[in-house]
Amino acid sequence: MGWSDLILSLSCFALSGFVFYHSRFFPKFTVRGEKLPGPSFFPDLLAFLILIFGFYFFVSGLTSLFKAREELRSSLFKGVSLYKSLSFVIIIGVGFLFYPVLKIFGSVIGITLLGVFLMRFMRVRWFSSLVYSVVLALLIHWIFKVIFKLPLPEGVIFSLLRG
């Protein structure tokens, strides 16, 4: 737990520093000459508490590091594999690419493409991933666009085809 505690404590320090810095620019809040808790009151309070937790984890991280040097020092990168980091990048990446892809290909083809990509990555065979993705895309299109009438993009490609 040593390293993760230390990293957590550093995040706490960074976060509270960030809040303290920004909240200085928040306006004061006065009602009929009386100063009341303004916009910075609550964030500052939280940042202060987080700072205290930061110190706690700093100390606990250091002590547990000293207690058990050998095993803990190496534990930081234990279990981090190329595959795992790749899967993170892919899920987050799909999140960021989701809309652009739909914008280009339209909702049905776009979701099919993303579906096949994700399923291939998750060890589904080509044929099944294609079938499942098409069903999924039609289902999503049907629920969100036909029933709920949400503006899923139509696809730049189709607009071009239409002239």
Partner: peptide, 11 residues
């Protein structure tokens, strides 16, 4: 299969 379900969940 979990691969299919998880992909669907993400989308």
């Amino acid at each position: 299969r979990a691969g299919v379900v998880m992909s669907a969940v993400v989308l």
